[in-house]
Amino acid sequence: MIKVEVGPADFDIGSETLDVSRQGGGAIASFVGQVRDDGNLKTLELEHYPAMTQKALQEIAETARSGWPLHAVTIIHRVGKLSVGENIVLVVTGSDHREAAIESCSFIMDRLKTVAPFWKKETRADGATKWIEARDSDRAAAEKWKK
């Protein structure tokens, strides 16, 4: 089972994890990304390319399923204006064994950060805004799975 959702609504980590675990296996891995408090951040705005986002995440989930024996994959990514501490992204994977669950979860996040069409814009407490730049470390992390 693959579930991909993109939208402004928050997600419930517990119920999403339970849904994946009900698909079988005994190893569930999850990752939650939240808006980091780095001092004077006011809001983080997530923009995306609606026509492409769903398709890109679906492809990432399918690539993960072809690389590891997974029973279920859930990817949820929020868009719109978010405050410090709010959820941004959730990935849950379910398999028979922990290596497959943890590795595939990590792979999905690395791919997502380099190919899924989302952009973050931060607004500081003083009103200054800035588009966040892509990081080389994220690109390197995504590259390592190609070996």
Binding site: G33, L46, H48, Y49, A51, M52, H77, I88, V89, M109, L112, K113, T114, V115, A116, P117, F118, W119, K120, W131, I132, E133, A134, D138
Partner: peptide, 12 residues
């Protein structure tokens, strides 16, 4: 039909 032009992505 559609060409999108954008900066490197920064989601997640």
């Amino acid at each position: 039909r559609e060409l999108a032009i954008f900066p490197p992505v920064t989601g997640g």
